[in-house]
Design a protein around this nucleic acid. Sequence first.
DNA 1: TGCCTGACAAATA
DNA 2: GTATTTGCCAGGC
Length: 113
Amino acid sequence: MKKPPVDPRERILQVVRRIPRGQVLGYGEVARRAGLPGRARLAAKVLSENNDPDLPWHRVLRSDGRIALPAGSSGFNTQVERLRAEGLTVTAGRVRGAKPAADVDELVWGPPR
DNA sequence: TGCCTGACAAATA
DNA sequence: GTATTTGCCAGGC
């Protein structure tokens, strides 16, 4: 079986990396799928520390479906632009047209046996 | 070792 | 629908 990284940070990055284009996840959801229930804030910190251009961090939103970063910020601007580029609609920091990536579990943990 | 902060979540008004 | 408060856990100093 595939053994996921032991480092919590790596696991979170792994989950975020498997989010399909046009789909989004919440910090709490990402943490839970990474095997770290209740570590939503840790996921946020990890994303804030990350510097990987290939990491679709912009697909990670708050439980309210809102952009986590403050409107007007550089990160906020980038996130909105990227989401729109994927066919989604962003209004007032809110994301529309996107649905929770429920099938990410299989993408992360491999084939569903 | 102890205190403060944080790209959060859920509940309440 | 938004604004506030409380709780949870890890990381940094």
